[in-house]
Nucleic acid binder design. Sequence first.
RNA 1: GGGGCUGUAGUAGAGUCGGUUACAACGCCGGCCUGUCACGCCGGAGGUCGCGGGUUCGAGUCCCGUCAGCCCCGCCA
Length: 595
Amino acid sequence: MNDKLGNWKRTHRCGDLTAANVGQDVCVMGWVQRRRDHGGLIFIDLRDREGIVQLALDPDRDLASHQKAEQIRNEFVIAARGKVSHRPDGTVNPKMKTGEVEIEISELLLLNRSETPPFMIDEFTEVAENIRLKYRYLDLRRPALQSNLLKRHLVAKTVRNYLDGQGFIEVETPVLTKSTPEGARDYLVPSRVNLGKFYALPQSPQLFKQLLMVSGFDRYFQIVKCFRDEDLRADRQPEFTQIDCEMSFVNRDDVMSVMEGMIAEIFKVALDVEISLPISRLTYAEAMDRFGVDNPDMRFGMELFDITSQVAGSQFKVFAEVAANDGLVKAMNAKGCATLSRKELDELTEFVKIYGAKGLAWAKITDEGWQSPIAKFFTAEELAALNETLDVEVGDLLLFMADTPRVANEALGRLRGHLGQKLGLARKDDYKFVWVTDFPLLEWDEEERRHVAVHHPFTSPLEEDIPLLDSEPGKARAQAYDLVLNGSEIGGGSVRIHDQAVQSRMFDLLGIGEEEAREKFGFLLDALSFGAPPHGGIAFGLDRVMMILTGADSIRDVIAFPKTQKATCMLSDAPNEVAEKQLQELGIRLRTKQK
RNA sequence: GGGGCUGUAGUAGAGUCGGUUACAACGCCGGCCUGUCACGCCGGAGGUCGCGGGUUCGAGUCCCGUCAGCCCCGCCA
């Protein structure tokens, strides 16, 4: 029924044919985008990954192929031979890359038929995401995903070329590895030959890349899948890809310098955008102070101001009491936003409540001064001082947040990001990078009543802060750095601890006892005792980088076969139940589901 | 664990205050057409209104539950 391919050889991809090919005999293969049957002439738009070209089938030229074309439908797979020709005057299609030419077909093979697809394979048809995910192989035929994955390949290739040029060596690390405390929930894999024991899938190759430094590889990288069994978000799924790097004999400036070169190269190759280097830096403390978050969107201003001391003595009880109880009062000037309606202001209040804020105070600046429910609580002098601090002009909208430092910063900081989007201050084709440095080393976990590592337990403190580990560990800063792009953390790393004594002290601070440290990380501690070089590294989230490079709103649009929000695969229906025999072999009995 | 949005032919939508046989578009099928290009014209088929229950003389519409997809909080060293 279908034609056989035989020894036909493709000579060109559809999208690559131009006027330069006129006169050539070519052979193309691909999927039928569209058939336009004029009764006599038949046109077929043939598609492959490079684009679409028009085939012209004239019964006067070759009756057999014309008759065959009459039964052709969308997404049939065909091969066609013919001569590339200029289209007749007046029939050039300027909207198509190949619109100047067509192929005058002399031979046609129908290689395979297709059911009518559940949705059109084109750039126009909008399809619900669950349908797209079920028929992922068809969605992947469409131009948007084709383009995103081709670009992803280009970026991966650029990364390998760049890092190779910088003396990095790609080394594979185990996927079946060891569960360790700290960090995200592990994915576990039962071991059949060691009944009752489990591997964990790596949250990152962290320990192995440090061991490679001890082994003397000097510069390592890997484009590698990592796994974290946590809930999903628009930019997060449980298996994701890191560009993982580690370097020996370097300080953090060396790491940042090499890596921003790589980022600049990626943007040059993928988008033809020049990133000016060096990328600017903010300390964590400064980022929190000015933006309320550790991943500030630098595409716009609208910075936060700490007005705690200015309002501490005011008659406004809400502010004064927060100020008196080690809280924080912060304000933000949304320039020109006095036009926001009461409803919109209510929406902003609802927005900050998501982050635990109790409310949001506001003031519109009019010709008569402050129009605000809280204006009456302030003296003329206090208002004048706030106007000065916040650089107030008529037409501005001031937003105030008073709460614990954590809530005030986060709520107002997130509101700043939200408003930046809403007001159109954050353009997708504007790329503003910033390094955030000097993160705290440790964070107090109220629930567990102990310190936890902000970055990870192998992060070195700032050299000058090492004494603080014994006096005030909570104040120690880390040699850690995040690369933030347009408000998204796209990478993070640190200089590591290469001294066994400091590493042991760190475990101690984290409440990991001697015995547990030996059991969980003994191999690392041993390795550090055999001449570990000073080393540091970083990992970039390739998926997030690709989201920004492609303008995608969802991580699913840059991954060929992504997971749904419930971490399932709609295509393969994973995860699924397994045979009782498989469970027996693994020594696993399922507990009855609790309802 | 929690909050929110969505679910109607293959697809994406409309469906008023609860009231006749659930609309038109794209796609699909058949016919016509020798310069179209998201071809055009004529005709046709196609529905478990996510699922279950309830209220009602009557439910796509109202109520309760549930499932799925998405967004967010928690979580994500």
